[in-house]
Design a protein around this nucleic acid. Structure first.
Lengths: 259, 259
DNA sequence: GTTAAAAGTGTTTTGCTTACACTCGATTAT
DNA sequence: ATAATCGAGTGTAAGCAAAACACTTTTAAC
């Protein structure tokens, strides 16, 4: 083996062009080849009513008029893909600074009957409470949250996009803290467990679930060396007709944002 | 939770357009908005000389003339992304029917100094022995295999693409059979272990490694109910100045191909 | 004060992961 | 022909993580 302890290549984009490059650029004319359109589609997910919900818009123009679709739009010529995705997200839900991740790029010819459209699909995780107003874009009528397990008929290949999203999300639950993106700042452990259950589609054991969490408890704050995921808060939330429940906070609120 | 035992949505693209769609399509004219160029870049990986190698081409035209790059090319208007990737792969290496997977889409404005280029990156895994001839494309000079751990200076954001590839590949080693794509039909267990070691960048324990494999052994072929990953073959390969080594075969050679 | 509803809390068993060292078989050199 | 070399091949014990499993506590409503 070449070098046993190398982990990644660590390369970044060279910032300097060479002399010949400038010469060439001066004479470069964008060619007149036909080009596909490029869009971003955003699968916006939230957890509410003990269910995993996705934001869909009802198309009020052809093609697929009357069917529901994942919101999306064209990528601007000066706009990165991530930026385009954030812009669409903001336009639809009014939220910014939420978790956003590129999912997959769908580019079958014929996926849009009008013309060649390649779409870079993203998914976003938002807290239900953050979303105030749902605004429809120009070619959309209603906007609504649908259970990802009980979807209406979908336009384009958006059913496939949602399948893929659910697969990715389930996969990431196991080795990341992604679930916290779907909860408010303060939450109970039961609420956290519900998020996992709703995404995985199965009930989990309460005691085993809690064993897996690394929690910094209130009293013994001595061992400050360890790295915890959750922090117990001094506050509690009154239960309805039962006892109060402890509140927790996710410690590392960094890395919420990409792009 | 809405429905506990649902696993995925199971949606597929609706095949029928509606009456209004045809009406609309008849009058549809592709708009004159400016569009980005879309390319595919293929990270072609192989294992040889106990190292993980990537195929690079030396650019003989600007920009980044003289630097090395991952092979790639434009996506045809009637061509799916997977097809375009396979075409590029065939053009460079002469191989078909190998493992190919979409990696990520890179679309920062400015990643190509000429014009806006969005590239859908793929990676391919090939056996070293399958690749006969390396053919350079039109804007490339030399073609060569480089150790992914000792790379030359790279054009565009291709260093980032290779970083990402290695990350994905390492991740997939744990929960998939992807390593078999890098080996010939028949191989020894030590050869298999070398593939894992070269990708992970660390030595593995021989006995523990073998414990993790599920092998159908030659003699006790009674328990046919279990599902094995490897099959012991009656043949052996003569060792150099040591004893013969057993040969194995990967049982489920399906799913080699996507797209 | 009895009931209802959800919170909170440990132990045991089982399986997986890790660490670790010698013998076997064939070839090569003396 | 004998010894040295090289990699193949093989098992066990300890530690750790995962899974199964049930009762008590707290508050509000009646």
């Amino acid at each position: 083996m070449a070098d046993a302890d190398l982990k990644t290549t660590g390369n970044t984009q060279p910032s300097q062009l060479q002399a010949a490059d400038y010469e060439y650029l001066a004479t470069y004319q964008p060619s007149n080849y036909e080009r596909p359109s490029v869009t971003v589609d955003i699968v916006i997910l939230t957890v509410s009513d003990q269910d995993l919900k996705v934001l869909l818009v009802k198309r009020n123009v052809p093609p697929y008029q009357g069917l529901w679709a994942v919101p999306g739009g064209f990528v601007g010529m000066q706009e990165s893909l991530d930026k385009a995705a954030r812009r669409e997200l903001l336009e639809e839900t009014g939220v910014a600074n939420v978790y956003l991740e590129q999912l997959y790029t769908f580019g079958e010819p014929g996926r849009d009957p009008r013309t060649r459209v390649i779409t870079v699909a993203y998914f976003a995780l938002v807290e239900a409470s953050q979303v105030k107003t749902l605004r429809a874009g120009s070619d959309a009528g209603e906007v609504a949250w649908w259970s990802i397990y009980k979807l209406p008929e979908l336009a384009f290949d958006h059913g496939q996009i949602l399948d893929y999203t659910l697969q990715r999300l389930r996969g990431k639950l196991g080795y990341s803290n992604i679930a916290f993106q779907l909860l408010p700042e303060k939450f109970t452990l039961t609420e956290l467990q519900r998020v996992y259950e709703v995404i995985l589609g199965e009930k989990l054991d309460k005691r085993n679930f809690r064993k897996g969490l690394s929690i910094r408890e209130l009293n013994r704050s001595s061992e400050s060396s360890k790295t915890y995921m959750l922090e117990e808060l001094p506050e509690t939330r009154p239960g309805g007709n039962y006892g109060p429940t402890k509140l927790f906070r996710f410690i590392d609120r960094v890395e919420r944002i990409i792009g």
